[in-house]
Design a protein around this nucleic acid. Structure first.
Lengths: 219, 219
DNA sequence: CCAATAAGGTACGTATACGTCTCTAATATT
DNA sequence: AATATTAGAGACGTATACGTACCTTATTGG
């Protein structure tokens, strides 16, 4: 008849996509086996056969969206253009970030899922810090920036600020915001003449990806 | 007997506090009439008598926490100390901010509640921007900063960054982070000699609180 | 002191989701 | 062609929450 039954990989993909679309449409509250099964046009049992509980399913759905995927590093010829390109790409993907944040926060606070702030950060931040590091290294190679240490907090400043804006907007931000972040904040900071002229030793660009450790207390 | 029945104001306050504690304990998922009634040691009907549905109750609970309360502006004698004091106070209150964000995001995405990103921003940001403006004005008065425009994005940079850190930590941040934000990012930016020496007109400090307008598209 | 009011329980019907199970029919495999 | 899988659909019992209704009892105000 009309029906062509999916199996294996194809079916699995359809379910995970349905799960993601469910998050988009109704957030974590609507992330139920029933709703996902209906959206994927299959039965609950088909899902349960693969992922025994909600946490496993959620992690699979998130994983499939490929947040760990390293965004390709732009190389436009200038630091400013590289920065704008990177932030614009991230901005394009912002809906996913907003959904993901909401989902993880809901799951975290509802206690249904064992999810640490560590994993939240990893999921949301990915390795954008690495991309920034690369871009800055290119700028040093071009001679736009002097060789020397750049504090980690400055390195991740552009993505931190963009993420902040996206969360507050619950959506993409206007392009002017991106330009503003780059021109008003980041470039003046990183090209600060005082930083360049200080009596630093001539070290290699040292951009350790070390993040801040988090406070233990939760009270 | 042992039982002293609460009435009127006292009862109302107890219910709203129970609601807030419920958000702290289990997030928006656990924000149910039943759970709140039990926590407040009263009956569901008592709550329903006052707030006919969940949205009304939630708004009352949030309102009672007084997020709009203007934090008093520190005046410690130097720009740096003022900034640190302001951020430390905000950091102390971070648990409330994290809970509030999670709640609003959950409610927003679950569609149960009519809540715009505008209101999210208002609820979370309050008028911290005003406090920053005051602090900078004091610094100008002291002669620490030159008279002149400071771009709005720079003005709210400290609070934006702190908020970002709090959200990513889902908790308070270590004090070093606050010091880092002030010393590595904000002070270098705001005391940038190039900004001071440029051919700006001698204008009054103009810190319009104008926020970015948000993108309309939601697709 | 007595009547009006409202608190504190609880029971109800409805709805939704969990997780398990069973059944059938479509697809693979041999 | 016969057999083994497994998708798709749904029924189940349990649990939880909504929102309403009812009843008893403490408190208050006249």
């Amino acid at each position: 008849m009309t029906s062509t039954r999916r199996r294996g990989q194809a079916l699995e993909a359809a379910i995970l996509d349905a799960g993601w679309n469910q998050l988009i449409k109704g957030g974590y509250t609507s992330f139920t086996f029933e709703a996902i099964a209906e959206r994927a046009e299959t039965g609950k049992s088909v899902i349960y056969r693969r992922w025994p509980d909600k946490e496993k399913l959620l992690l699979a759905v998130i994983k499939r969206q490929g947040f760990g995927a390293p965004s390709d590093i732009p190389d436009m010829g200038s630091l400013r253009e590289d920065l704008l390109a990177l932030l614009r790409t991230a901005n394009q993907r912002s809906e996913r970030a907003a959904i993901l944040l909401s989902t993880i926060l809901s799951a975290y606070f509802s206690g249904e899922i064992s999810l640490t702030p560590e994993r939240l950060r990893t999921a949301l931040l990915g390795d954008q810090s690495r991309a920034l590091t690369e871009i800055l290294r290119h700028a040093v190679d071009r001679g736009e920036l002097p060789t020397g240490d750049i504090p980690p907090r400055i390195v991740r400043l552009p993505t931190d600020l963009l993420r902040q804006e996206i969360i507050m907007n619950l959506n993409r931000v206007p392009d002017e915001t991106i330009v503003d972040i780059v021109d008003t904040i980041f470039l003046p900071l990183v090209t600060d003449t005082r930083l360049q002229s200080t009596d630093r030793e001539e070290t290699q660009l040292n951009l350790s990806g070390s993040f801040h450790s988090r406070t233990a207390s939760k009270e």
